[in-house]
Design a binder for these strands. Structure first.
Lengths: 345, 345
DNA sequence: ACAAAACATGTGACCGTTCACATTATATAA
DNA sequence: TTATATAATGTGAACGGTCACATGTTTTGT
C-alpha cells in the first residue's frame, strides 16, 4: 500500500535547507534566522505539510496521549469529568484515548491495549468500583503515571482527585436535621465503595453531633439505581418503620424513592422530605425539583488531567491527593418537619 | 531521556532467532515452525514484551485509531452513540480518539490535531449542528474516510447513519391524532438542522393524511433546551391559542413544556397530552412518565464504526447511507382527547 | 585586530516495527 | 536420485521524525 505523505524532507528540499532546519522551525526553536524561518514556513504552507505525530512519538518516546478508563461513558458524572479532562489535556497538547470497562475483568485487556499504544499515563474513574483499581497497582509500581478520579481508595499512595464525601453526607443530613427531621432514612451506594462509606460516615457524624438518636434500621444499602431505592422504600413502608425524610446517596435513587413514596400515596415534600446527591441535569425540572448535593465535576477533570500531565512531564513529580468540596443545592424537595408525628403506614 | 523498552530484538536474541521471526509470531503468520513459535512465546512472556503500536503504525501507515468529533460528551445521546461505537471499534482492533467541539470554529483545530496524529478516519456526530460538516468536505475530497452520525446533511455523498426522523415525527403526531387530538402544538429544534425539518415534515404528513386542518401558529421553533420550550408554551398560553396536545422534538423540551403547563395550572395528561422524542434515561420516572419516540442509539454507534472501518480497510469501499427506524414508547403522558373543547386560558 | 563565544546550519544514527526479498532447510514428485 | 516446490528463517531498507554532534559563520570583548 503506497503511502503519499508530505515529509519534513519534502519541505526541506522545497525550501532548500536541511531537514533539521525544518524540524527546528516546526518546533519553534531558537537559532533559526528569520529569513530561513520564513522560507520554511512558506514551503510548509505550499505543501500543506503536517508533522507526523506518530513519527514524533516514536523518536521522543512520548505519545502525548492519556488513557482514560471509566466504567462507562453514559453516566453523566463520568461524561462530564472526561469532557473537562479532555479540555484541559488538549490545552496542554495532550489527547485522551477513552475506554469503557463495564466490569473489572474488562479492565485488564483495556490497559494492555492502551499500554501497547504507549499512552503516557492513565486517568482512572471510580477505581473502587468492583475493585478495579487492583489492576493498576502493578503499573504504579513500574512508575507509570496513574491518577485516580472519584471514588478512590483512600490509603493508596497514588495521585488522586476525590470529593469530600464525608462532608457531603454530613451537609445533607445536617440540612434535614436543621429542618427538624429526626427519623431520616439514608439509602447508600454499595458499601464496598469508598464514597458510600464516607457519605454514610457524614450521616452518622451529623446525628452524633446533634445528639439525636439514630435508628440503624433506617440505613439501607442500594446499588445506585432508581429501582433499588424504590424497593427499599417500599420495604421500609411495609415494615412499619417511621421516618419523615430520606437522604439518598445519588439523585437516581432519590427519583426511585420519590416514585415509591408517591405510589404509596405519600407526597414529597409535604409528607416526606427527600435530598439527593450529584445534581444531575434536568433534576431541577423534576416534580418536585430535587434538593441535592452538587460536586464540582469540571474541577475533577481539570485537576485530574493536570496532575497526570505533571507526572508525565516531570520525572521527579511527587504524588498528590486533591480533595474537592461539595455544595448544598436547595430546591423544593425538603421542607420543615411540622407535624405531630412521623408517617406511619 | 533514556528509554527502557523491551523490543522485538530483545525477544529475538533471547529466543535465539531473528527479529523477523518474532514479528511473524506476534502477527500470527504461517511459516513458523511450532517449536520456534513456542520458543518465541516463552521469551515474550519472560520479558513481558509488548509490541509497540506506535512503531507498528509508523511502519504500516495505519494507526487503527478513529477520530470522533462531537459537540459534547455530556449529552446522553452522544455519549451512548460514542460508547457503542467504541465497543464495536475495539472489537475490530480500533481505538477511538474523542474530541468535543462545542462550536463550529473549534472543529478545525480539532481536525488538524487528529490529522497530525494520523487517525485513519473520522466519525462525526451531528454534522449539521452549526453547519460543522462544512469542515469535513475537504477531507472527504482528499479521500479520507468520514462517516456522519445523526442529524446528517441529506444530500451529501458521504457515508452516514441517520434515523428516519420523518417517520418518527409522523408516528408521534399520528399517535396524538389517533387519540382524538386535533390541535397539536409542535416544538421543533432549530430549523437549520436536518432532523428538525424531517420531524416537522412527519408532523405535516400525519395531518395531511388525516385530513385535519393544521394551525400554523402551533408550530414553534425551540433550541432543544427545556427552557426554550417552557417559554414557548407560556407564550402560546398567553396568546390564547387553543390546543390539547404537544409534540416536542426532544425529551428535554417536553420536560420544559410540562413544567410550564403545570405552572399554569394545567395537568398532564388530563388537560394536555405531551409526547417527547429520544427516550432519555430516567424519563420513565418523570411525573408523568413520558410517552416518547425511541431511537436505537447503540445501532448508530455500531453501524457508524463498522462503516468507517470498512472504508478504512478497503480502498475501493463504496459510500453507504444507513437509515434506522424509530419506535413509539407509550407511557402515561398522552391520553384520549375526551372533553368538549380544547383548553383555553 | 584576533580569540572566544554565540549563532546558524548540516550530517549520521536511532526510535521499533514491517515489508520485500534473499537464503537455507525440508518435503514432494518424477 | 535429482529437480522442484514449499516451508522456515534471515537481511537490508524503509516509515518520518528527533537527538547529539560537527561544521561554518557571525558577533562580541579587549
Amino acid at each position: 500500500m503506497p503511502r503519499f505523505q508530505v515529509t519534513i524532507r519534502d519541505v526541506a528540499s522545497l525550501a532548500d535547507v536541511s531537514y533539521q532546519t525544518v524540524s527546528r522551525v516546526i518546533n519553534n526553536r531558537k537559532n533559526v534566522s528569520p529569513a530561513t524561518r520564513l522560507k520554511v514556513e512558506e514551503a510548509i504552507a505550499e505543501l500543506d505539510y503536517r508533522p507526523n505525530a506518530i513519527a514524533r512519538s516514536m523518536a521522543k518516546g512520548h505519545t502525548y496521549t492519556l488513557g482514560c478508563i471509566s466504567p462507562n461513558l453514559t453516566n453523566y458524572i463520568f461524561a462530564r469529568i472526561i469532557e473537562s479532562a479532555q479540555t484541559e489535556a488538549r490545552r496542554q497538547g495532550f489527547f485522551i484515548l477513552t475506554g469503557s470497562a463495564s466490569s473489572a475483568d474488562k479492565v485488564e485487556p483495556l490497559i494492555d491495549e492502551m499500554l501497547n499504544r504507549r499512552v503516557d499515563g492513565f486517568l482512572v474513574l471510580n477505581p473502587r468500583d468492583d475493585e478495579r483499581y487492583l489492576h493498576f497497582l502493578p503499573l504504579i509500581e513500574k512508575g507509570i503515571p496513574v491518577v485516580y478520579l472519584k471514588n478512590t481508595p483512600k490509603d493508596e499512595a497514588v495521585s488522586s482527585v476525590s470529593c469530600d464525601d464525608k462532608t457531603g453526607g454530613y451537609v445533607a443530613t445536617q440540612h434535614l436535621l436543621t429542618l427538624g427531621h429526626q427519623s431520616i432514612v439514608t439509602i447508600t451506594g454499595p458499601q464496598s465503595e469508598e464514597c458510600s462509606q464516607e457519605r454514610l460516615a457524614g450521616y452518622h457524624q451529623a446525628f452524633s453531633e446533634s445528639g439525636i438518636s439514630l435508628n440503624e434500621n433506617l440505613s439501607v444499602e442500594g446499588d445506585w439505581s432508581a429501582k433499588s431505592a424504590g424497593k427499599i422504600i417500599q420495604n421500609l413502608l411495609d415494615s412499619g418503620e417511621t421516618f419523615s425524610a430520606i437522604f439518598t446517596q445519588n439523585d437516581r435513587m432519590a427519583i426511585g424513592a420519590i416514585r415509591a413514596l408517591q405510589d404509596a400515596g405519600l407526597r414529597v415534600p409535604q409528607d416526606i422530605s427527600v435530598i439527593g446527591y450529584d445534581d444531575i441535569p434536568l433534576i431541577s425540572y423534576f416534580a418536585p425539583p430535587l434538593t441535592t448535593i452538587h460536586q464540582p465535576l469540571d474541577d475533577f477533570g481539570r485537576h485530574g488531567a493536570n496532575l497526570l500531565i505533571s507526572a508525565v512531564m516531570n520525572k521527579d513529580y511527587k504524588r498528590k491527593q486533591v480533595c474537592l468540596g461539595a455544595q448544598l443545592i436547595q430546591r423544593d424537595s425538603c421542607v420543615e418537619f411540622n407535624r405531630g408525628g412521623d408517617v406511619r403506614i
